[in-house]
Each structure stands twice: as structure tokens, then as C-alpha cells.
Design a protein around this nucleic acid. Structure first.
Length: 496
RNA sequence: GUCCCCUUCGUCUAGUGGCCUAGGACUCCGGGUUUUCAUCCCGGCAACAGGGGUUCGAGUCCCCUAGGGGACGCCA
């Protein structure tokens, strides 16, 4: 059987560097075996999923050069490739599981489940559903459902014994069934959870190898159970180590730029990023460090995947990017610069902002420097303001960052509404409030309009500049961070 | 707390029982090339988490301890 792999992002946020990491390895494995690489959109969380995120993820993966052979936009014979369009398939398999006793309907209320979890935690047990509804008579279960009572479908899990499975990277693993929860497979809104949808799709889409994050290792017993109960044999699983922050924790936007858009906007080359990502979990047999995805594909070997969680180190990525830049001939370089940002399409939105502020054409570049490239480095003195002291500035930047992190829309008007409301809530005049933000974002207090600038720069770049500003202002220790958090929570901000 | 995974220079890694006096890369330091800077070249600092075994021989195999990470949602 020919090799088929997939990457299955969920469109609940901006494109993440971890998604590219997983996509890279799955793509390379498939290509190295003459197989196919599939993109599947896991939009089963109705609350958080959005088409805008889906588009963003696909754009970013394409930018990275991680193209798929089958997917929602390019089709394929195993579609649809968007889980929200496959609900009937999941329902059918869920019913099959319930009918065969592999799963059961659960009518428990949220209140009961919360109380249960609390008492188990108090007793130092792994929180786990207690199986109350498992004892329901099938007829009774069916009747209650038919009467319109809300329910979920849960996986029936053995009370004792041990689950054994193999991981391609880590070998044989044993997990006691006691540790495995009776996972919800179908939510009360009728949508499947990840566990059901992924297993069903991986089987139906003929996926042969799953390379996914180590975070899923503990879910393997559930997945194996579903494969078994449906009469399927599971694909080979490889749990890759998670990318880490410098402090060793799972990579997160609080500590690192994690958005692919950040790297794109900051002028990293996709081929350098992929090369670097490859090094984060794999090595060339000859120890070569600079190689293309094609070269990696030609040499790929699953046995060379590493086990330890690598720290994502911007310094080495920057070095590597420089290697790629310098390897170009001048024509290529010019093309890449134009392709990146110095082109009509990218510059057009700036024209209305710049033209009215311009006397000579030479005025153009100094006005847009911080929008096209990095802003100048700032220090504490740049924030000095006649009505705001250092702590005020820190408070403004901190709260603005929190407010912006919670903002779903990212356009000029949304930014203005959110930040003006925040200034009001903080009791600071907008004019004063904006000053530290200008410094943080533009590197100076006189610049093009702030909200336009932020909209243009994008979320990831703005977040990283605000974080840098916070650091420059002396950083926030644990105590101060707590205080700022409380202070922010107590604001009567109509926008939150 | 319970369970699972992981552990070689600060960071990314090579190493699959003798080739290891542990190699490469980034960073840093020193030197050279260069009108400056950068590039480039040369050199240097720096690690097998600890303890027990197995073996003629252990970074490599086993066990224990410690440390780190992850999971424990009607999120993925």
C-alpha cells in the first residue's frame, strides 16, 4: 500500500510554527516514499473555528512551500477534507459504536461532572468519568435520547488491565487503562471530538503513517480502542517531540514568536525556516546542516528522528537565513525582496497615510521604515512622558497587549475601538495613552497613525514589539505580573 | 497529585558496545582578510544528569534516583 500522511490543523487561531513543523515531516515522509500528503481541516470546535483562520493557515503553509496533494481547496478522492462537512460519517460510526457496546450515551450534567472531577482531584486520583451512564439499559438510553434529552457519546474504557501500543520513535509503551478517561466522542451539539473524527478520517482517508506531536501520546489508548472497536487496524504512529521555549516549556506565543506570519513579515525565507525546522527533530546522515526540503526528502529516514524536545532558537535561525540570503545571486535577491514586501500591492495601503505627509519623495522611506523592517531599538528614556511615569507606561503597554490578545478582528477600526475603550477604562486621556504605544510599535512618538500601523504590521509583529517594550521598561516580575493581571481584570472595559 | 515521555557543550545535534583523548553547527571569545560594518577564513572556551549493575570493554544495554516536559476538557 502506498504511503499516505496528513497534517490536520484546527482553524482556531493564527498559523502556528508547530503546524509547519508537523506538516514538514509528514510531507517529507510521503514524498520520500512516493506517497501522498493530505491537508485536513479539523474544524469540529464550532465555538472557536473560523473560515478566516482556515484561509490563514493554508496561505501560511503554502508560503512555507509545504504543499499538499489533497485537501479542501484542491480536492482528492477521499474528500471532503473539512471535518465539518463529514458529520454524517462520524454520526454513523458513533452509532455503530453505541450499538456494539463500544461506546454509550451519557446524560450527565456539567454540574455533576464538575463535582466529580473536584472530588477526584481532592483524592489525588486522575480525574476520570465514573461510568454512571454506562450502566443504563440500552432501551432506556434510546428512549431518553428519543425524548430529546441532551447527551454525549462516550467511549467505553476497560476498568483494569494495561493498554500496550507501539510508537515508531519511542518503542513499546504501556499505559494502565485506569488512567484513560471515558472520552467524549460526540458532543451534545452533535459534532465529534478530535478523538473520534481523527481516527475515522485517518482510516477512511487511507492514512498509513501519523507523525504528530508528543502531546498526543497519552491519547493513544483511546485511539487504539476506537480502531479496534471499529474493526480497523491503526496506522503507524510516530510522536515527535514538541518545540520548546528557551525555558524548556512547550513553545508558546507568550515567550516566543510562534506565528508563521511573524517570520514571513520579518523577512525570514520559507526555505530557511523549513531547513531550521527540519534540524529541530532530524539530522542528515552526513551531518550537513544546510539542505533543501528536496534534499531532505531524498535522504529521509524515520530512524533519524530525535526524541528530545528542541528549544526553538531564533539566533541560529537568523544565521541560517543569512546563509540562504547570501547564497542568492543579486537578481534572485531583488526578486525575493520584491516578492516579500517591496511591491505595489504591499505598498499601496501605505500611500494614503504617507502621501499627505510628504513634501519630497525622499520623505517616503523614513516614514515607513518601521512598517517594512524592524523598528529601531528603544530604551527606557524613549518612553519618558510628561504625564506618565515608567510604571504608567508599563501598565499601558501591558494592558494593551492583553486587550489585543483577546481581539478577534484585526483591522484599523477594531483596533481603535478596543484601545480607545481601554484608555477610557483606565482613566487616561487617549492622547497620553497612545504615547507609549507609539514608542513600542514605531520606535518613536511621531509616526504614521498608530491603528493603521498596527493593522498593517499584523498581530504577531505587534505582539513581539509590545513584549520587547515591556522588557525594555524593566520587565515584569512574578509579583508585578500578578498585580497587572488583577488590575486589568478589574477594569470596567466595555470591550471585554 | 496520578500516569506517560525525555535527558551528550548555553542552544541544535553526531554517536546504534571498542574507530570517543566524545565530532559538527549556532552563540561567545581571540586572530586574520576588508577604507568602516558585515561577509569570509583560522583558532579557542564548552557536554555524556547522578548512582548502581551487565560486559574484557558503556555516552551507547538494564535498574534506581534526580531533573525537565507532556497529558489528565462536550479544545485540538
Amino acid at each position: 500500500m502506498s504511503v499516505r500522511t496528513r497534517v490536520a490543523p484546527s482553524p482556531t487561531g493564527d498559523p502556528h510554527v508547530g503546524t509547519a513543523y508537523m506538516a514538514l515531516f509528514n510531507l517529507v515522509l510521503a514524498r520520500s516514499q512516493g506517497g501522498r500528503f493530505v491537508l485536513r481541516i479539523e474544524d469540529t470546535d464550532q465555538e472557536r473555528s473560523s473560515p478566516a483562520f482556515e484561509t490563514g493557515i493554508m496561505d501560511a503553509l503554502r508560503w512555507a512551500g509545504l504543499d499538499w496533494d489533497e485537501g479542501p481547496d484542491v480536492g482528492g478522492e477521499f474528500g471532503p477534507y473539512r471535518q465539518s462537512e463529514r458529520l454524517a460519517i462520524y454520526r454513523q460510526h458513533a452509532e455503530e459504536l453505541v450499538a456494539s457496546g463500544g461506546a454509550f450515551r451519557c446524560f450527565c450534567t456539567k454540574e455533576r461532572l464538575d463535582a466529580l472531577r473536584r472530588s477526584q482531584q481532592a483524592n489525588r486520583e486522575t480525574p476520570r468519568y465514573d461510568g454512571l451512564c454506562r450502566g443504563l439499559e440500552p432501551t432506556q438510553s434510546r428512549d431518553r435520547a428519543a425524548n430529546g434529552e441532551a447527551y454525549v457519546v462516550r467511549l467505553d474504557v476497560p476498568e483494569s488491565g494495561t493498554c500496550r501500543f507501539a510508537d515508531g520513535i519511542r518503542g513499546d509503551i504501556e499505559i494502565p487503562w485506569r488512567q484513560v478517561d471515558m472520552q467524549v466522542l460526540v458532543k451534545s451539539d452533535g459534532f465529534p471530538t478530535y478523538h473520534l473524527a481523527a481516527v475515522v478520517d485517518d482510516h477512511l482517508m487511507g492514512i498509513t503513517h501519523i507523525l504528530r506531536g508528543e502531546e498526543w501520546l497519552n491519547s493513544m489508548p483511546k485511539h487504539q480502542l476506537i480502531y479496534d472497536r471499529l474493526g480497523w487496524s491503526p496506522p503507524a504512529h510516530y510522536h515527535l517531540p514538541l518545540l520548546r521555549n528557551p525555558d524548556g516549556s512547550k513553545v508558546s506565543k507568550r515567550r516566543n514568536p510562534t506565528g508563521l506570519d511573524y517570520y514571513r513579515r520579518s523577512g525570514y525565507l520559507p526555505e530557511a525556516l523549513c531547513n531550521y525546522l527540519a534540524l529541530m527533530g532530524w539530522s542528515m546522515p552526513d551531518e550537513g546542516e544546510i539542505f533543501s526540503v528536496e534534499e531532505m526528502t531524498a535522504a529521509f529516514d524515520l530512524d533519524r528522528l530525535s526524541t528530545g524536545g528542541p528549544v526553538f532558537d531564533l539566533t541560529k535561525l537568523a544565521w541560517m537565513n543569512g546563509q540562504y540570503i547570501r547564497a542568492m545571486d543579486p537578481g534572485q535577491f531583488m526578486d525575493r525582496v520584491a516578492d516579500w514586501a517591496v511591491n505595489r500591492e504591499n505598498l499601496t495601503p501605505l500611500v494614503p497615510l504617507v502621501q499627505e505627509r510628504t513634501q519630497r519623495l525622499a520623505d517616503l522611506l523614513p516614514q515607513v521604515d518601521y512598517l517594512l523592517g524592524d523598528r529601531t531599538a528603544v530604551d527606557e528614556s524613549d518612553f519618558v512622558h510628561k504625564r506618565l511615569d515608567r510604571d504608567d507606561c508599563k501598565r499601558v503597554v501591558d494592558h494593551a497587549k492583553r486587550r489585543l490578545d483577546g481581539l478577534t478582528e484585526w483591522d484599523r477600526d477594531s483596533l481603535r475601538d478596543a484601545l480607545v475603550a481601554l484608555a477610557d477604562a483606565m482613566g487616561i486621556k487617549v492622547r497620553d495613552f497612545l504615547a507609549p504605544l507609539f514608542v513600542a510599535v514605531a520606535g518613536r512618538t511621531v509616526a504614521l497613525p498608530l491603528f493603521d500601523s498596527m493593522a498593517y504590521l499584523g498581530r504577531d509583529v505587534v505582539r513581539s514589539r509590545l513584549m520587547d517594550a515591556l522588557a525594555v521598561l524593566g520587565g515584569t516580575g512574578k509579583k508585578q505580573a500578578k498585580r497587572l493581571e488583577r488590575d486589568y481584570a478589574n477594569l470596567t472595559d466595555p470591550g471585554t
